[in-house]
Simulated scan of single mutants.
Amino acid sequence: MNHYTGLIRVLPKYGREASQVSTLDELVKLAIDAEKTMEGHMSEPKLKLPYEFQPEIKEKLIEAAALQDMSATQLLIRIIERKYQEVMG
């Protein structure tokens, strides 16, 4: 997931409407403003996938995600987005 997409998904959780923002710079300014008004730091929403993987596939996904310091869900989303861009782009 690129930073632009990530911020668009996260900012509404913190009370900032990001759908009409057109540049990464504007999104970053919104994110900074949101973070200044809260305790702690913003984080990407966690998603629970609605299906199960075979245990060996799940283990590989978790291991690969840990090596990249992200959740398995985030890694799966990144893989899907890259494949989507490859097919559509």
Score class of each variant (00 low, 15 high):
residue 36 K to G: 02
residue 36 K to C: 04
residue 37 T to S: 07
residue 37 T to Y: 03
residue 38 M to E: 07
residue 38 M to T: 04
residue 39 E to Y: 03
residue 40 G to A: 02
residue 40 G to F: 00
residue 41 H to W: 00
residue 42 M to K: 01
residue 42 M to V: 00
residue 44 E to L: 06
residue 44 E to A: 07
residue 44 E to I: 04
residue 44 E to D: 11
residue 44 E to K: 02
residue 45 P to S: 05
residue 46 K to L: 10
residue 46 K to P: 00
residue 46 K to Y: 10
residue 46 K to R: 13
residue 47 L to H: 06
residue 47 L to I: 09
residue 48 K to M: 11
residue 48 K to R: 11
residue 48 K to F: 13
residue 49 L to P: 02
residue 49 L to D: 04
residue 49 L to S: 07
residue 51 Y to F: 15
residue 52 E to F: 12
residue 52 E to H: 12
residue 53 F to C: 03
residue 53 F to H: 06
residue 53 F to V: 02
residue 54 Q to F: 11
residue 54 Q to G: 08
residue 54 Q to D: 15
residue 54 Q to L: 11
residue 54 Q to C: 08
residue 54 Q to T: 06
residue 55 P to S: 13
residue 56 E to W: 13
residue 56 E to S: 15
residue 57 I to N: 10
residue 57 I to G: 05
residue 58 K to V: 04
residue 58 K to F: 12
residue 58 K to E: 14
residue 59 E to V: 09
residue 59 E to C: 11
residue 60 K to H: 13
residue 60 K to S: 11
residue 60 K to N: 12
residue 60 K to G: 12
residue 60 K to F: 09
residue 60 K to R: 15
residue 62 I to A: 06
residue 62 I to M: 07
residue 62 I to H: 03
residue 63 E to F: 12
residue 63 E to C: 12
residue 63 E to V: 10
residue 63 E to N: 15
residue 63 E to Y: 14
residue 64 A to C: 10
residue 64 A to W: 01
residue 65 A to Q: 03
residue 65 A to N: 05
residue 66 A to H: 13
residue 66 A to W: 05
residue 66 A to L: 07
residue 66 A to E: 13
residue 67 L to Y: 09
residue 67 L to H: 10
residue 67 L to R: 12
residue 68 Q to S: 08
residue 68 Q to M: 08
residue 68 Q to E: 14
residue 69 D to L: 10
residue 69 D to R: 10
residue 69 D to E: 14
residue 69 D to T: 06
residue 69 D to S: 13
residue 70 M to D: 02
residue 70 M to Y: 01
residue 71 S to Y: 00
residue 72 A to R: 03
residue 73 T to P: 00
residue 73 T to L: 07
residue 73 T to V: 12
residue 73 T to K: 04
residue 73 T to F: 04
residue 73 T to I: 07
residue 74 Q to V: 07
residue 74 Q to F: 05
residue 74 Q to R: 08
residue 76 L to C: 05
residue 76 L to T: 01
residue 76 L to H: 02
residue 76 L to R: 01
residue 77 I to F: 04
residue 78 R to K: 11
residue 79 I to W: 06
residue 80 I to V: 14
residue 81 E to N: 15
residue 81 E to F: 09
residue 82 R to Q: 13
residue 82 R to M: 12
residue 82 R to T: 14
residue 82 R to S: 14
residue 83 K to H: 14
residue 84 Y to M: 08
residue 86 E to S: 12
